[in-house]
Design a protein around this nucleic acid. Sequence first.
DNA 1: CATTATAAGGTAAGCGCTTAACCTATTCTT
DNA 2: AAGAATAGGTTAAGCGCTTACCTTATAATG
Lengths: 334, 334
Amino acid sequence: MKITIYDVAEKAGVSIATVSKVINNTGRISEKTRKKVMQIMDELEYQPSVVASALSGKSTFTLGLTLPDLANPYFAELARAIEDQGRKHGFNVFICSTDNDADKEEEYYQLFMKKRVDGIIMVSRDKQNVVVKKILSEKVPLVMIAREIFSAPVTSVMVDDYYGGMQAGQHLLQQGHQNIAVIVENLTELGSKERLRGCVDAMKEAQLELDPQLVIEGGYTLESGKAAMKQLLQQKQRPTAVFACNDILAIGAIQAVREGGLKVPDDISIVGYDNTILATIIDPPLTTVAQPMQEIGERSVALLVQQIQSKETVRQRVLLMPDLVVRQSTRTIK
Amino acid sequence: MKITIYDVAEKAGVSIATVSKVINNTGRISEKTRKKVMQIMDELEYQPSVVASALSGKSTFTLGLTLPDLANPYFAELARAIEDQGRKHGFNVFICSTDNDADKEEEYYQLFMKKRVDGIIMVSRDKQNVVVKKILSEKVPLVMIAREIFSAPVTSVMVDDYYGGMQAGQHLLQQGHQNIAVIVENLTELGSKERLRGCVDAMKEAQLELDPQLVIEGGYTLESGKAAMKQLLQQKQRPTAVFACNDILAIGAIQAVREGGLKVPDDISIVGYDNTILATIIDPPLTTVAQPMQEIGERSVALLVQQIQSKETVRQRVLLMPDLVVRQSTRTIK
DNA sequence: CATTATAAGGTAAGCGCTTAACCTATTCTT
DNA sequence: AAGAATAGGTTAAGCGCTTACCTTATAATG
């Protein structure tokens, strides 16, 4: 059956300890023996069992990742970034969609524990997360990628929503817009609030004030973005620019504008948030605030691996900066 | 540290064998003892180590999935479907992006072997796949999700491209189009050829012939779709309808049409292929041939699990039917 | 009542590795 | 040239389970 370390040892005429040492590059082994063993391993196409090595004290080189929904392009891209970084460090990752369902989250967590993953990355909107507390109390290495500041002391990677909102606002202001509306996702959520606040502050700096009438909760779907925009189009003083707090909402807004017989960006400028692939394929291509996906993946994996390897827990929150990507859904106002 | 089977056994006043038996529901255990042991496991929040149980002969309950790129919405959706099905059967899945790079594929395959995954699902365009042959020769359970018929006897799940192309063609014909163009991905690839052939045959049934001038290779990118469409717009006899062999191409085509001062579907109808999320957010929403993602995930996992459990290898090819989703990028011609 | 079945659970080997502790030639030292 | 270092291995225990094979009560049988 499967080739084991015994087969290699026997064929090389050494003990299994020696083989183990050449695999792990530990202990003292003469160059000659090393060569010999390596050659035999090659010949036999020996693949040391991570299962066995994990059982005898080493790690499983496996990470668990939970996120709301892998079918969502935003999370898929993030997952890809994490996967790539994991690979660099020699880790495979279990990617698990929770649908924001606490039960599924719990279920996956249990699976992670049974499989003895070395660490967990959670992407979550929920700040009152019970599972997180369990993970922490079990001292399993954990990194959160979140939009809310977590009450517990968790190492987390976040993107500065306030700054992102501000960038969006500044961009529109630079283009001469004064009458700006904001479609937020959900005003009870910190991330949304921060994006809004950033935009408001950008306007304040320009001595402008955001009309509360022009702030609308849009939720997360295309339809709701459309509806929000329609509502905005009815206002007595129609805005000349809209900052939508995610790309889907922005796209819904574009569609509503078009259905209203107006044009983007000619009549109304729109800036989105996230810079998902959707932003590039929509017409006109969407000006949007880009989350630094690669960077998020890189930092979170790095922080996790660090925890795994050093066992120490220097908890920290990393705050990354988003970046505005200017495309064609915004333009200078006359 | 971690609770082990010994802790449970001791606290319950039984041997570890007994605990193992209640965990696995094997052997004879009295109801009383079972209850007792279960209760203790609960109390201690005992999570049996899959690592240990895998080492002693059971499976790892882990699947490996390789696909070209998780950041691509099409594959992300597929991965999600597979993940869900895996969960139903108690499996976690390592999701790995290969970027169609043979080296990465090989690397991931080696990792899968080291981690002793129970089975592998590969999503690939490549039919000359060396890794596949290795997997087969190692007798590791494998299911391919492919577009090409594989030379080796691999269990595979495919979608009937010919029928999909036919559906697209029939739809356009029913709407009265006679002058139909096709933007294929790549004429050297079987999947593309089949879609084209399906469309051609649909036309033949209607006593029509597809003008070879109206078949253009478009590749896989938005830009290339745009370019292809522009080329079509220049033809002396401009087509009234276009069948683009994937959604991205279709979207590129829509943009080209719009840039040419024409409208979809008023001037030109367009049908895509894949029914990715992109089709729903584009304006106008894209009529497209839907791949049965859920079904693909379900069947492939089911086939894999079957192989894993029964050890027998009833190789088979499952051919699923795609389904046309009519949206607003096509319309009846006067 | 002695014998046999059966139910309930225990013993111990083994899965494929890692690693601390130990052993034995060589090579240095002085 | 004798003792101390050192290089290069080997031995064996242990990681946390599973499982074939025992053992021992207890119930069934003639």
